[in-house]
Each structure stands twice: as structure tokens, then as C-alpha cells.
Amino acid sequence: MPIISVENLTREFKVFNKEPGLKASIISLYRRPQRTVTAVDDLSFNIDKGELVAFIGPNGAGKTTTLKCLSGLLYPSSGSINILGYKPSDRKPDYLSQIGFVMGQKNQLWWDIPPQETFLLHKAIYNISDSDYKKRLNYFVKLLDLKDIISVQTKKLSLGQRMKCEFVAALLHQPKVLFLDEPTIGLDVVANLKLRHFIKTINQDLKTTIILTSHNMVDVAETCKRVLVIDKGKLFYDGSFSELLKKNAQYKFLKFHFDSSYSLSQFKKFGEIVKSGPNSITLKVPQNKHLKVASSILASYSVSDLNIEDTHLEDVIAQIYTDR
């Protein structure tokens, strides 16, 4: 029995059209044509308990709108959503007590006071007992190394520190379902790594069902086995991330270092030359031919080193988005 069940979800927005310029602005005072934008278009999927799923897609695809409908923040225009046996848009307290939402660009921490005060507020809101509160806070403080941070004013924290505290605020009540909307946006490599590890840990330790949106494909690759690819509001892939890459990663990159110099023109027959140096060359070769090309070059030239790389994740995904 899936914990999340979405059927034919559609969400539309009315937007006003305005031509550029001052004249158009004056006209818009008494006449504003509007059009309907379908941000989410007939989406259907199920998610089981304990899954860690990513929504990916280009900007404006409808990922965040979908997440907002699932959480109950937005009312669907049509279709149905059932999460934990509740209709999210009813916003019943029992439902809201079992979900958490971290938005990468919005704070739930009170800005002017330390995060620990927000945690105390959440303790009261979610009826967390003193012993559970202490136990959970200690767990998160240790896991995320927050000991010296939670008593500092939120506005004085770095983005990475703030995001860690946002996670704690969203998880103190141990929600069954956690929505993460671009949780690692703007974070540096180290902070990103730590949060990624944290997301995987809470999914494993606490069995929290997690749905996240991200433009960082390394985040997605490292944390999620399953992805839903959304574009123009429609779902066009629901399955394993590695399968998605395998199907769409059509090229390999072969990086050769040679003992001596060779003219570039000799290598054009093997594949596309993407980079070259005094004694090195990088070839872009179709996936199904890379081994044959590698062995041909190894047999014919004096190779000191060879690296075979997959297409960069971002390039594969960008290609998927572009091909739609």
C-alpha cells in the first residue's frame, strides 16, 4: 500500500499578460488579458513508505508546484492526492503533524533569535515530550555538528549552518514524510556533502519517506535510487536513476596521454576531439564503440595513460531536458 498516491493531479495558475513599455502599462490599468498556465498536468504516481525519491526537471517544469500540492500548501485544480490516508489540502492537524517541509529559499527559523528558540516552539507545536525532545536534539546536534551554532542568532549563521538548523526544525517531530525543495541550493561542496549524508542517514535510521527536488544531479545520484522526471508539468519518466542515465548517456570520454606527439588529424576517424594538449587528447565516442576505439588506439599508438569517463551527469540530464 503506497504511502503517497497521486492521481491525475493538475494545477493551473492564472497569469496576466502585459506587453512591454509604458503605453502597455497604462492600458493594463483598465484591460489586463490573462491566460491560464498549467504548471502540473495530469500527474500520477505512487510512493511507498521509506522511499527516497527525487523530482527533477528543467526550471518551470512543475516540480515545486507538485511538492506544494503534496504538502497541502496549494490546492489542486483537479485530481486527487492521498498521503498517509489524508487529503493534504484539507490541512488537518493530524496530517500536518506527520509531515515536514524544508524549502531551500524560505526560512522557518525565526530570523532574529537563535535556532534553539524555534526548536522549542516546534516542541510545543508538535507536542514533543521533554525526553524525546532532548534525545532527538542531541541526535541531530551530534550528527550535524551544531553544538556551537544553535544558540547563535539565525541571521548571523552562514547559509550552510542555517540549512542544517532548518533540517533539525523540520525533523524534530519525526515526520513520516519529508518534503525537501532545493535543500542544498547555494551550499558549498563540503556543506552539500554533509547534508547529502544526513538525508541518507535519516532515511535509513528513521525510515522517513523523503521527496526532494534538486538541480544538483550529484545530490540526486548520491541519495536517490528513483527519480521522477517532470517537464512542462508532465511526468515523462518514473524509475531508476541509473537506468535513466544508462539509456541517455550515449557517449563516453576517452582521455589518452601519449609518450610522444601525434598529429590530431589521425584521431578524427575514432571520434570527436573535444580537447587536446601537447601529448594528450580527449575523444568523445559513442557508448557502444568506446572499447573498440580504446583498444585500436592502444594497439596503434604509444599510450602512457588512459582514462575512460562517463558523460557528466549534468550533460546527460541537460540532453534529456533539451530533447523534450
Binding site: K68, S71, G72, L73, R91, P93, D94, L96, S97, I99, F101, M103, K106, N107, Q108, I125, Y126
Partner: peptide, 12 residues
Amino acid sequence: NGNLSTLILKPL
């Protein structure tokens, strides 16, 4: 500015 969202998503 959308900050009402953080209130709406809580049981209060």
C-alpha cells in the same frame, strides 16, 4: 512574500 507557507504547514 510566501512566508505564510511556513505557518500553514504546521498544526497550528
